[in-house]
Computed example of a mutant assay.
Amino acid sequence: MKEKDLLFFQPLWRRIVVTLFCAGWAGWEWLNGQTLWGLIITGVTLYCYWTLFHTFVPIERQDKKG
Rank of each mutant, 00 (worst) to 15 (best):
1 M>V: 11
2 K>E: 15
2 K>R: 15
3 E>Q: 15
3 E>V: 15
4 K>M: 11
5 D>A: 10
5 D>H: 11
6 L>Y: 07
6 L>I: 09
7 L>K: 15
11 P>G: 09
11 P>S: 10
12 L>G: 02
12 L>M: 11
13 W>I: 05
16 I>A: 11
22 C>P: 00
23 A>G: 08
25 W>P: 00
25 W>T: 01
26 A>F: 03
26 A>W: 01
26 A>Y: 01
27 G>Y: 07
28 W>E: 00
29 E>L: 14
30 W>T: 00
33 G>N: 06
33 G>Q: 04
33 G>M: 03
34 Q>V: 09
35 T>L: 13
37 W>K: 02
37 W>L: 09
38 G>M: 03
38 G>T: 01
39 L>A: 13
40 I>K: 03
42 T>S: 15
42 T>P: 02
44 V>S: 07
46 L>Q: 02
46 L>H: 01
46 L>G: 10
47 Y>E: 08
47 Y>F: 13
50 W>K: 14
51 T>R: 09
53 F>D: 04
54 H>L: 09
55 T>W: 11
56 F>W: 09
56 F>V: 01
58 P>Y: 03
59 I>H: 10
59 I>F: 07
60 E>Y: 08
61 R>F: 00
63 D>L: 12
65 K>S: 08
65 K>P: 02
66 G>Q: 12
66 G>A: 14
